Amino acid sequence: MRSKMDVLAAQPVGNTPAELAAFVRAEQKKWGDLIREVGIKAEHSPRDSRELPACH
């Protein structure tokens, strides 16, 4: 696992669940603000969602 994280330049940390939640909220705000500021929009698949196979 360590070698996979090294390839991604990821740094594992041992945080509490509350610290993780705070980090995720901060990242959502940071990237959400940027996305809204520059007007990024999601691309929609040409396939209608009703055509997707059922998951079992």
Rank of each mutant, 00 (worst) to 15 (best):
E43H: 03
D48H: 12
A18E: 09
D48K: 06
H56A: 08
R36V: 10
A10E: 04
A10R: 01
K30E: 12
A18Y: 02
E27R: 14
L34A: 13
K29G: 08
A22W: 03
D33Y: 07
A9R: 11
G32M: 11
C55Y: 07
V38H: 01
R2F: 06
F23C: 12
V38C: 00
H44D: 11
R50E: 12
M1P: 13
E27H: 10
A42E: 08
K41H: 14
M5L: 01
M5R: 00
E19L: 04
L34E: 13
A26E: 15
D48C: 05
V7E: 00
A22N: 09
H56N: 11
A21L: 05
P12I: 01
E51K: 09
G14P: 00
Q28E: 15
S45R: 04
K41Q: 15
V38F: 01
P46T: 06
Q28L: 15
E43R: 06
A18P: 02
I35G: 08
R36T: 11
Q11F: 04
P12H: 02
S3T: 06
M5F: 00
A22F: 02
R36W: 03
V24G: 10
T16V: 01
T16P: 02
K4G: 04
P12R: 02
N15M: 06
P46D: 10
S3H: 06
P17N: 07
L34S: 08
Q11N: 08
Q28P: 07
E51W: 12
E37Q: 11
D6Y: 03
C55A: 08
R25N: 14
R2T: 07
I40R: 04
T16K: 00
S49V: 14
G14K: 04
P53Y: 06
N15R: 07
S45G: 03
L8P: 03
R36A: 15
K30H: 10
Q28A: 14
P46V: 09
R47S: 10
C55E: 06
R25K: 15
A42N: 08
G14F: 01
H56F: 08
